[in-house]
Design a protein around this nucleic acid. Structure first.
Lengths: 154, 154
DNA sequence: TATTGTTATACTCTATAACTATA
DNA sequence: TATAGTTATAGAGTATAACAATA
């Protein structure tokens, strides 16, 4: 388990294949490609899917808060929400006492589509688990979450 | 170690924080941000740095092979190599018997800059190791490398 | 004065088709 | 006919500044 398998095709990658950043990028690209394919039948991009998930978990959510949770800049969220609303998956409701904000909720259609997408995501995640190998998944996720806070002090 | 720490700010992320893909993205963004800052004093972007590393490990490399190793499309590599050559870090030498290809090598200046960049990368990697927590790093890298081959059959 | 959503815009990455010169 | 490098271009994703409405 000491040496790495071939990642650079027929040529060597030098120290690159021992660096967390490079392997993180390769893994992320592969996993995203696989998940994008899994969600494609529902016409959901990753941002669409994750937005639906977070709105379901936090009904009456503001767009601002959704952006912070998903790390999407507010301006870039507008067209995403426009499309989800146009498709009747999300409702931009009103917030009593603050006419600047929207209260985001899933429509019944949004909930239904999300439920089906979640099943596809679960099948995807099972493939991920199989590819992961013998590592303890909880420890792996914990390590990723720790890394995601690396740059907080910069 | 069962529950996850706060990743969504003040709101919950739902099942998102248990999904490998999402955590992989957060981790990759953070680690890249940290590494980009580490390489900034040398005016090297990540693609520049990794290109120098792979050329050093494979002297007389063709541009085509470099692109395959780094998973960069050949057209997108042209301006990268143009800039590195213009800075005198890389030489596009000739291949005896094939006037279509270049034989890429580092110049002495390229080697010297790469050596200094490697020291900065090592300091970055030490920060990464510290952030990683108690996980076995070899097992972690192995899991990432396995994930990077997830979509090979698609 | 600050905040929410919006518009406009720009910059980086990535992807594809087509050209040239060589093989 | 195929390959290496190149050009041009288009599409995502992401970033900032500035505006209108509201707080």
């Amino acid at each position: 388990m000491a040496t790495r398998r071939s990642l650079g095709g027929d040529i060597g990658l030098g120290d690159l294949e021992n660096q967390v950043g490079f392997l993180l990028r390769l893994a992320q690209v592969s996993v995203f490609k696989h998940l994008i394919a899994a969600l494609e039948p529902f016409d959901l991009r990753l941002t669409d899917y994750s937005a639906l998930l977070v709105i379901e978990a936090n009904p009456e959510l503001k767009q601002q808060s959704l952006g912070e949770a998903l790390r999407i800049q507010r301006p870039n969220l507008v067209s995403i929400m426009d499309a989800l609303e146009r498709r009747g998956l999300v409702k931009r409701g009103s917030v009593p006492g603050d006419r600047r904000s929207y209260a985001l909720t899933l429509t019944p259609e949004g909930s239904a589509l999300l439920a089906r997408a979640n099943e596809a995501q679960a099948r995807h995640e099972a493939d991920v688990d199989a590819a992961l190998g013998p590592i303890d998944k909880a420890a792996f996720l914990d390590a990723l979450a720790r890394l995601s806070q690396l740059s907080d002090g910069d």
